[in-house]
C-alpha cells in the first residue's frame, strides 16, 4: 500500500518538475521559434523571388535598367516610402505592392505593356501567389536591409556558370523574331551593325556579361530588348522608342538568339 503511494509521489513530482521546466523555457522558445519561422519565410521567399521577380528586379535585387527598380540599395530602405507617400510600415508597403501591384511607376520609365507599373501577384487579384507566399517574399525582400544599409557585408558572388543555350529550334525562332520585330533596322540584317546607328551584336553573348557589373548577359539583353535605352553602347546615340512588344516566350527566344549570334 505504501509502495504504490511512494511511486505515485515520485511520478507526480517528476511530472511537476517537467511542467515547471516547460513553463520556464517557453518564453525563450517563442523567441527562437519566431526566428526559425522568419528564416523559413526568407528561404521560401528566395525561391519565389528566383521564380517570379528576378526577370525584372535582377537576380540580386539590383534592378534591371528601368524595367524594375533596385530593391537592395539604401535608397529603397530609406527613401522609397517618402517618395511614394506611403504612411504605413515598410513591411506593409512591400507586401501590398507584391499583392496588388502598382498602378503608377515608382520610376517613370517602365514600358512593360504600358498599363501598370508592376502587375499584381496575389490570387485575389488574379496573380499566382498565395497569401503566405507573399509574406515569404516580403520577408526575403526586407532581408536586404542589413546589406543595403552597410551593416552586413556579404561575400562577392562567384562567377556563375554561363547559361548553356543549345536548343536550335529556339535560336531559329529568335532569329526570325529578330527580323520581324525590327531589330535589323538599326543592328543590321545579320546583326553586324549599321554604322553610326546601331552597334554590331555579334559576340554580344560573351561581351554583355562584362558591361555592367552584377548583371548577367541574359538579363542585360532582356532589359535592352524591352527598353533599348536601358544600356547604351559607347559612341552611339540614345535610341528612340523602338521597344519591341512581344510575349515572354518570344522574348526568351530572342535573347537565346542574341546570346549565340556570332
Amino acid at each position: 500500500m505504501s509502495r504504490i503511494l511512494i511511486a505515485g509521489i515520485v511520478v507526480f513530482l517528476a511530472l511537476l518538475a517537467l511542467l515547471v521546466t516547460v513553463g520556464v523555457h517557453e518564453e525563450q522558445r517563442l523567441v527562437t521559434a519566431a526566428q526559425i519561422d522568419r528564416a523559413r519565410q526568407i528561404e521560401q521567399g528566395a525561391l519565389l523571388y528566383e521564380q517570379h521577380c528576378r526577370t525584372c528586379h535582377g537576380s540580386n535585387g539590383e534592378g534591371l535598367g528601368a524595367l524594375g527598380p533596385a530593391l537592395h540599395d539604401a535608397h529603397f530602405f530609406t527613401g522609397r516610402l517618402r517618395e511614394v507617400g506611403w504612411a504605413g510600415s515598410m513591411h506593409d508597403y512591400v507586401a501590398t505592392t507584391i499583392a496588388n501591384g502598382r498602378i503608377t511607376a515608382t520610376r517613370p520609365l517602365y514600358v512593360g505593356d504600358g498599363e501598370v507599373a508592376m502587375p499584381p501577384w496575389s490570387r485575389a487579384s488574379g496573380g499566382p501567389l498565395r497569401y503566405d507566399q507573399i509574406e515569404a517574399l516580403t520577408a526575403f525582400v526586407l532581408n536586404w536591409q542589413p546589406t543595403a544599409l552597410g551593416e552586413v557585408i556579404v561575400a562577392p558572388m562567384p562567377t556563375p556558370t554561363p547559361l548553356a543555350v543549345s536548343d536550335a529550334a529556339q535560336i531559329a525562332r529568335g532569329r526570325q523574331l529578330y527580323g520581324e520585330a525590327g531589330c535589323a533596322a538599326c543592328h543590321g540584317d545579320n546583326a553586324d551593325g549599321v554604322a553610326n546607328v546601331g552597334p554590331a551584336l555579334t559576340g554580344i553573348g560573351a561581351g554583355a556579361g562584362e558591361r555592367v557589373p552584377g548583371v548577367s548577359p541574359e538579363e542585360y539583353l532582356r532589359a535592352s530588348v524591352l527598353i533599348p535605352a536601358a544600356h547604351v553602347a559607347e559612341g552611339y546615340a540614345r535610341p528612340g522608342d523602338c521597344a519591341a512588344i512581344m510575349t515572354d516566350v518570344q522574348l526568351t527566344d530572342l535573347v537565346a538568339y542574341l546570346l549565340t549570334v556570332e
Partner: peptide, 14 residues
C-alpha cells in the same frame, strides 16, 4: 558534379 554556394543576403546562402 558542381556545387555553387553564394551568399545572397545577410545570413542567407544559396
Amino acid at each position: 558534379a558542381f556545387v555553387e554556394i553564394i551568399e545572397r543576403q545577410a545570413n542567407l546562402k544559396a
